[in-house]
């Protein structure tokens, strides 16, 4: 498999390897289908070059009639054609358009059936649910039918993944007339631009499902739940609004819980409240990541908190 799939890469390596390389095979913790090949240069450690290769899908599957990117049976886009890197740098400068302020968000682009005209700047109805780092959109799709009267949006930094979710929603709208009109997706860096999309107290639910763990301490500032970013989430959430977090990484689970616990504007939901909330069950079952964890028999760690008015 190695030889056939990555002849080019190996060839490239041979070019490099006057020095001895040690090959280490490792399974990515997040995705068992994807194997990672790590190379660690042992001698001549001048620059300590380290390469990471990712295995893509086989090439023979590409042949398909009409639009190969869509499944013939379900007419939904196929995920394998929208593969992207598992991580994206949230610190880099963004090159996608960002609305100047929440009233510049064009609802007619996102929800064309509900907002036919784009001149409207004051909307009768505003987005209430935000799925931050929505990935392939599993949760949004489940929520859409569970809360048909609520506008919701997914925010995702990786452009190909956003493209997939966009196609998926469009296909679902065609397949199920009248449904899925309340969901949309946008490519953005939610760590920077939450205030550009939502007014103060606009949201009633925010979701942070299986975020990037960023294990290294120097990368903790890249985590999407952090004490300072929670201030912005508290700003966007209305009083009583709920923030849902879940992860399969124990360390991150503890971190997110500790951040929320330490914040004066969030309090934990009680067990019976968690039991009564239909959304809590979706956290581990609806998303692609959650299903993957369940398949592999993994453990999940969730933290669900309510936005409260800080006590003075």
């Amino acid at each position: 498999m190695l030889a056939s799939a990555h002849y080019e890469t190996l060839h490239h390596l041979q070019g490099l390897s006057q020095n001895s390389y040690n090959f280490l095979w490792g399974k990515s913790a997040r995705n068992s289908k994807v194997s990672t090949l790590k190379l660690i240069k042992l001698s001549n450690s001048g620059d300590g070059r380290r390469l990471r290769l990712r295995f893509g899908p086989g090439r023979k599957m590409l042949k398909n009639e009409t639009n190969p990117h869509f499944s013939k049976t379900t007419r939904l886009p196929r995920k394998r054609f929208y593969r992207a890197r598992a991580h994206s740098n949230p610190l880099s400068d963004s090159h996608f358009p960002v609305p100047i302020s929440p009233c510049h968000v064009d609802y007619s682009l996102h929800y064309p059936q509900l907002f036919p005209s784009s001149d409207q700047t004051v909307h009768s109805k505003k987005i209430q649910f935000a799925d931050i780092g929505c990935g392939f959109g599993g949760l949004l799709i489940s929520l859409s039918t569970l809360f048909p009267d609520t506008l919701m949006i997914g925010m995702e930094l990786r452009d190909k993944v956003t493209e997939y979710v966009k196609e998926r929603i469009l296909a679902l709208r065609v397949e199920n007339p009248g449904q899925y009109q309340n969901v949309s997706v946008v490519r953005t860096n939610s760590m920077k631009y939450i205030p550009n999309y939502f007014e103060k107290g606009q949201l009633s639910k925010m979701f942070f499902l299986f975020p990037d763990p960023h294990f290294k301490e120097k990368n903790h500032r890249r985590r999407v739940i952090s004490p300072h970013l929670l201030d912005e989430y508290a700003y966007a959430l209305c009083t009583g609004g709920i923030i849902y977090t879940i992860t399969d990484v124990e360390e991150l689970g503890e971190w997110m819980k500790a951040c929320l616990e330490g914040h004066p504007m969030f309090e934990a939901l009680r067990d019976e409240e968690l039991e009564a909330d239909p959304v809590v069950k979706l956290l581990s079952s609806a998303t692609e990541e959650g299903q993957k964890v369940a398949r592999n028999g993994g453990q999940t760690f969730q933290a669900v908190y309510r936005r409260v008015v800080p006590s003075l």
């Binding site: 100047i100 302020s101 550009n196 103060k200 929670l230 201030d231 508290a234 700003y235 004066p264 800080p310």
Partner: peptide, 13 residues
Amino acid sequence: SDGAHEIQSFCLG
């Protein structure tokens, strides 16, 4: 020492 958590507003434009 507790930090400033309450955002009054964002001035965007």
